[in-house]
Design a protein around this nucleic acid. Structure first.
Lengths: 341, 341
DNA sequence: TCTGGTTTCGATAACGTTCTCGCTACTATT
DNA sequence: AATAGTAGCGAGAACGTTATCGAAACCAGA
């Protein structure tokens, strides 16, 4: 197919030495004299030598590759996580293979099952919201494949996980709404079965209870702005209308704001809205969206770091890492909505 | 490191047949009886066999992997392109390795140079806007490595390219502004040296000339909304203020709209704004942004398709593919700005 | 001069596949 | 019944690298 590449043998022949010496000279310096080492390195550069990872990977079982399995990348959170993963991986000389599941459990299973165990050293995964059966991941764990989950994590599989502190973030969001004077608070929750959905819901409920407030409704649905619109229509159809909305994520909150605007309801003044993520669009939408900022980049770096630890020390203990979130106040939760962002 | 995996040999031993037969049974049916084939497949499944890609890649030089080199993924366009690439690749049983250059020519060069030629079958690249020296790519071409550029393409390297029709898109955008009654049109251009910057600028200039209009300013800068704001400040500092802005992309146009709003200038009515991309935020921003929709997903699929063609037939002729764009009219270019989106 | 210890290097097996031969046993043809 | 042809399979080399073992060369000490 492609032109024949120069191998270690070619260098050996050119120099009249053995392949073993060339191989040694390539990486460590011990067991080989300084001059031969220099000679080898020079001619290697001259002949434009590149190591064949198939061969090295074959003999020492270990490719320097990690697989990332993620539902999608066309949103701020996921794309930023990947960026963090990618940067840390490259720093550590690991390469990233990307697999998109498109939030389909079928594809997730297929991808994980077909993923040859020999082609990657470890796996970084964020499950789809459809996934209920985790046997495809359990098989990997049983084969001792290092595996780390981030953001959306299953409860059953016993591995390391890296998440943001969803529970505390939800508490902070709800506290903020209450502090701003809202009392009839509803929650637009994520899909059922997802850990983060449960955590954020619980934070919301616990904070309400702490303040002796009733929930003004909880609706479970997807993560899109369309879902947000639909949920608002359902919510305002009932007799007891909320005066504030805590959305499980920003995109859904965008739908909420758009719906409120279209229905002539003043965002902030009449109905407060807070999201979760800190998507860049939350600064652009009008009114701008208050939100709980997630450390997406940090999640990416950290989960990659944990994975590589697992790869390099097979006895590295299982970690459960939770990164802090941060409240960002903007216009959508200002009662007297005059100030700018 | 990870537990010993079952190999083809284990299957052969378990069945009392040779490895060659097992190997053959695994892929094509010819030269092996239906019953042995079934036997092999069954026990392979039973023993949880996964092929070792290092070994297959070694003997038949060809890994089923392609590398994607891209400045970033944290924006709509790039993440959608990657999604297209990924989906087509998976359909064709190729795996995607992701490399982010962060728009740094240094990292681009480093990544491309360190990319072992033996570890991927081909390369899909979108250059940084810093890159001026393309020798790292030319080396690949000389080594017969299949290489396809998309979106941002160098002019010098002789390979296949897949882009949207930037020139015609820019013409359409400018025509639209003129048709809406704007006549003092300025262009916020992209970084110099990028082909798409040049194409969009030229489309703008040619359309103005066709209508006997003067340009009300061209400013080159980056792609961010911050850049858009800065450029607007510079533009409105002069005595001859434009009544319409054609921005090289949507994110920059968001900055424009934000700047106009902050300065009490009515978007659409007083100053028309049109972008390029069709970022989902363009529907969310208020007023919503008219734009030229780019076929991002299609670009991804198509460039991956061309690359795989090149990989599978080394004599596949070099292609220059240009995908059509589409005008999307929203509020930011409505003179009497009452209508909804 | 002999011994023992380093340093530097070469031969060779191994990693898990695929590929090229060639062999056997069976079927078809005359 | 003899021959040719074919289907099915096995033996072994090959891919490019690393790892193991041992050999050669050199040096120091007695």
């Amino acid at each position: 197919m492609t032109k024949r590449l120069t191998t270690i043998k070619d260098i050996a022949k050119a120099l009249g030495i053995s392949v073993a010496t060339v191989s040694r000279a390539m990486r460590d310096t011990y067991d080989v004299s300084a001059e031969t080492r220099k000679m080898v390195l020079d001619t290697a550069a001259k002949m434009n030598y590149r190591p064949n990872f198939n061969a090295t990977g074959l003999v020492r079982s270990g490719t320097h590759k990690i697989a990332v399995i993620i539902p999608a990348i066309t949103n701020y959170y996921f794309s930023t996580v990947i960026t963090g993963i990618q940067e840390y991986a490259l720093e550590q000389n690991y390469q990233v293979m990307l697999y998109l599941t498109n939030d389909s459990a079928y594809w997730e299973t297929k991808v994980v099952r077909e993923l040859s165990l020999s082609s990657v050293d470890g796996l970084l995964a964020c499950i789809t919201y459809e996934t209920t059966d985790f046997s495809h991941f359990e098989e990997l764990v049983e084969a001792d494949m290092p595996l780390v989950f981030f953001d959306r994590v299953p409860e059953s599989v016993r591995t390391s996980v890296v998440v943001q502190d969803d529970y505390t973030g939800a508490c902070t969001a709800t506290e903020h709404l209450i502090a701003q004077g809202y009392s009839k608070i509803a929650h637009l929750a994520g899909p059922r079965g997802l850990n983060l959905t449960q955590q954020r819901l619980q934070g919301y409920l616990d904070t309400l209870k702490k303040h002796n407030l009733e929930s003004y409704g909880v609706i479970h649905s997807g993560f899109s702005d369309e879902n947000g619109r639909e949920d608002m229509a359902a919510l305002f159809n009932s007799s007891s209308k909320p005066d504030a909305i805590f959305s499980v994520n920003d995109r859904k909150a965008f739908g909420v704001i758009l719906w409120l605007r279209e229905h002539g309801i003043r965002v902030g003044e009449e109905v407060g809205v807070i999201g979760f993520t800190n998507d860049p669009t939350s600064k652009i939408i009008s009114p701008s969206l208050s939100t709980i900022a997630e450390p997406a980049y940090g999640i990416g770096r950290k989960s990659c770091e944990v994975l590589i630890r697992h790869i390099q020390k097979q006895s590295y203990p299982t970690q459960e890492i939770s990164l802090p979130t941060e409240l960002i106040v903007r216009e959508s939760t200002r009662r007297k909505g005059i100030g700018k962002d």
